[in-house]
């Protein structure tokens, strides 16, 4: 079953074409990787899917719903979560609040109920705290709930960002360079971890990554992008040996 489908998506910055002709067909439960040289429009694609940028042309559908024209929070509320290439936590807020904020669309009480503290307010707030604590303990951050996010070490900030993205209750999770700044050992752990949350949260995953070890290690399908256009697509083995890819992006010789 197709979960996310993009057809003929184009995007311009001013007159500059950032994404030429982007097509994607992501199946439910799949783990797909996007690779490509710097400036290939990978992050732009994420921004187009999540509504940060509006596609100039084309259509992006999630479970049959058109995403082009929707605002980021509407798209997120359809249960598409994401992380950022350069961590974007709410730096001055507590670890707990970082996760609680992402419950906005999944919690259901009106401003009036909030102001007067009546109706669904209490029950919903308790549920948010409970779920946040559950997520934090999965990520081994539960003891740091009261800590300010910016005080966490880098690795923990990365984990918190994923925890926060999971708090919106995603079916589809977009990870933008999750292994950035990690050593090979940490990458191994991350690979295991990604597989685990995929099972645990029944996720479909789309990830951008430069670390070939991670991409080749866990992705079932890989898409090679250049100016948003698909240069090649297929399972890791096929990509590793695709002459077009080798020439255009990876240079001479085999990769691994």
């Amino acid at each position: 079953m197709t979960l996310l489908e993009a057809t003929k998506v184009r995007h311009f910055f001013g007159g500059l074409c950032a994404v030429g002709d982007f097509n994607l067909d992501l199946h439910a439960g799949e783990l797909m990787g996007i690779i490509g040289p710097n400036g290939a429009g990978k992050t732009t694609v994420f921004n187009l899917i999540t509504g940060v940028y509006q596609a100039s042309e084309g259509s992006i559908r999630f479970k049959g719903t058109e995403l082009v024209g929707k605002t980021p929070h509407q798209i997120t509320a359809l249960r598409i979560g994401r992380t950022f290439q350069n961590i974007r936590l709410f730096r001055d807020l507590s670890v707990l609040d970082n996760v609680r904020i992402a419950h906005y669309a999944q919690s259901n009480y009106s401003p009036l109920e909030a102001l007067l503290q009546i109706g669904r307010y209490r029950r919903e707030e308790e549920r948010i705290i409970e779920n946040s604590q559950r997520l934090l303990s999965i990520f081994k951050l539960e003891t740091l709930a009261g800590e300010t996010a910016k005080n966490l070490p880098y690795g923990m900030q990365r984990r918190l960002e994923i925890a926060r993205a999971l708090a919106i209750g995603p079916e589809l999770l977009l990870l933008d360079e999750p292994a950035a700044g990690m050593n090979p050992n940490e990458i191994d752990q991350l690979m295991e971890f990604i597989q685990w949350i995929r099972q645990e949260f029944k996720l479909t995953l789309l990830l951008i990554e430069h670390q070939m070890k991670l991409v080749m290690g866990i992705c079932e399908r890989i898409k090679v992008l250049d100016f948003g256009e698909t240069l090649a697509e297929g399972p890791p083995e096929a990509i590793q040996n695709d002459p077009k890819v080798l020439e255009a992006y990876l240079g001479e010789g085999p990769i691994g």
């Binding site: 950022f84 609040d97 609680r100 919903e124 926060r164």
Partner: peptide, 24 residues
Amino acid sequence: SKYGRGVLSIREDEIASDLMSVNT
């Protein structure tokens, strides 16, 4: 409340806030 935390998240990073489902 969730609205107040939305307000805080706007101060911290409005785009991230929107992407965490806050109706900014």
